[in-house]
Design a protein around this nucleic acid. Sequence first.
DNA 1: AATGAATGAGTATTCATTCAT
DNA 2: AATGAATGAATACTCATTCAT
Lengths: 188, 188, 188, 188
Amino acid sequence: MFAEKGFNAARISDVADAAGVADGTIYLYFKNKEDLLLSIFEEKMDLLLAGLREALDGVTEPLEQVRTFAHYHFRQVRDHRELAEVLQIELRLSNKFLKEYRPQKLWEYLSIFAEIVRVGQEQGVIRKDIDPFMAMWAFFGAMDEMAMQFILAKHRKFSLDAAAETVSSIFIRGLSIPEGRGQSLEEA
Amino acid sequence: MFAEKGFNAARISDVADAAGVADGTIYLYFKNKEDLLLSIFEEKMDLLLAGLREALDGVTEPLEQVRTFAHYHFRQVRDHRELAEVLQIELRLSNKFLKEYRPQKLWEYLSIFAEIVRVGQEQGVIRKDIDPFMAMWAFFGAMDEMAMQFILAKHRKFSLDAAAETVSSIFIRGLSIPEGRGQSLEEA
Amino acid sequence: MFAEKGFNAARISDVADAAGVADGTIYLYFKNKEDLLLSIFEEKMDLLLAGLREALDGVTEPLEQVRTFAHYHFRQVRDHRELAEVLQIELRLSNKFLKEYRPQKLWEYLSIFAEIVRVGQEQGVIRKDIDPFMAMWAFFGAMDEMAMQFILAKHRKFSLDAAAETVSSIFIRGLSIPEGRGQSLEEA
Amino acid sequence: MFAEKGFNAARISDVADAAGVADGTIYLYFKNKEDLLLSIFEEKMDLLLAGLREALDGVTEPLEQVRTFAHYHFRQVRDHRELAEVLQIELRLSNKFLKEYRPQKLWEYLSIFAEIVRVGQEQGVIRKDIDPFMAMWAFFGAMDEMAMQFILAKHRKFSLDAAAETVSSIFIRGLSIPEGRGQSLEEA
DNA sequence: AATGAATGAGTATTCATTCAT
DNA sequence: AATGAATGAATACTCATTCAT
């Protein structure tokens, strides 16, 4: 309906025009301008979450799920470039989003990763010395920063596939149980 | 001089008062309000960078340098909590910082990581199929997101030491050359 | 129906809710919001007027009627405190009421006083050098201001009986024919 | 400086234009738009108060002071018609003025009347059964309502001199000690 | 008669920035 | 170099009112 504008700098009247309604009508559906942005976020997160669950469907091996997650995430960024720009950039400029909001939907999305780690630990394929939630934030942070770089790089060389593969290969190996006796590097 | 306020919401006149000068005087030293924030960032980055170099001094093994980097980073967040809040939160609300700035100083700081990876690859202790810059952004993103969670968690349980150890152990193993023939998990 | 809210600040939708109807329905019965307030005023003035006529019924002596009028007026303020607040305060904030309206109903109410004066003059008990309409406005102004002070004084000491007695005693003597030769004070 | 506009309906930018300054400059001197109106009121009250004291200077007889007060008040209304319109009409439309403000300056002005009554009572020329403050409000209310009628009557017949004389003659006689034994009328 | 979703006009106020002194 | 009084652009939001159903 309005993601087309994608500006935090957009006037409410612009949005209203684009939607073909009067300014006041916006306020019948959204509490205020910020709520409008946050609503877009929530709506899209629902789709993102559903898509992720579908993508993971059929993938049983936890470490393989990590790879699937990463590829799915970056594919979404690539396929919904405009939306990704709004979510990566504009959303972060929102005081409320940054400080207060920390939304349920994002939590649900990321929790899937934490759950993957937990199950992997149960199955004995993921290190037990790693807190699933810490791993979750690290994984999200890594992907998010790379997505940000992609968005900021605008139209320059940047392969999201490569990004997905880099992140997943690092985390897959980083999280997996060392083979043989070889824990020599991180026994701390 | 003014980090004590730490608000994007702080009035220029507040800053001027705190500094014991007139409003106009601020503009003799800074181009505008945003420049003021960015200047704090740059100034602090110099210290951070110098500190990192010092911390890495004497550490020769690349993978050990990764661990040192992570511990140093989170130690700074812990020891300069107030400043970290400004840098994590307020700075991100700056349109310029997010979109245009991508500053030299941050680049210098992170480049050290890319260089560690490059050297590690030369020395044969780090996988060659990983782009150092990709790894750099992933590493920074992981640390940054965890730091953000720490800041947002306010006064609750959150061990920065554990965060440092988690990130570094994941990346150290994730970046290291697989031992034996054991690439079985991620040959994709 | 709505005096309970008593606010110029009340939303039309509040009034509609309180009345158990839809917003638009209000406009089937009242031209606009101001008309709503003015309608309350008119409706209440009818009652006030009828009550005054009843109170004066049986009182024949003009100067005694003045006292009756005053006591009646203040008794209404006391007995209908909430309504009086709306009429004293909210009504005065209405541009239309203050500037244009000067309503028929108030005029009828006050005219009774002018008529008392006129009759008193005919009967030779009230000074003929006083214009009945001037006296009317003075009398109303005196009562109205005291009522206003009472309303504003909220819950503090203020006897409306004393107010009634003060106003009436001043006006009764002030309007009456000087006894004996004693015009010495105001022959100007 | 701006009384010339006299509109509650005036835009801040109109006032600023008339004053030859920018909109923002208004806010360096006045807290907000209402404060602007209240400030005019306060400033003018100082003059009014000073003028009243001067007018009363040399008049020693309390009842004569009552007449002087009334004539002075209405003369001000007549001589400063424009200002009076602002003060009578616009000021009353101010929620703050009506409900909260009840200002020091008005109190000072009216207190002079209460003091006249008190002194008159001491000197035995004014009835002791009248509370000076009640009399004060009645007197002010009477004058104020007549002034309001004058303002509202716009350019029609209305003699402020006659108004002054009516009010003062009623109050002078109404407040004075009955001569002879003649309390026959209001022994209640 | 009643509804209630949609309308859209209307404006005080802030505060970063300037520049004459 | 420093001042700080003056500037003025810039806009989200409310809520009385309408009118198609």
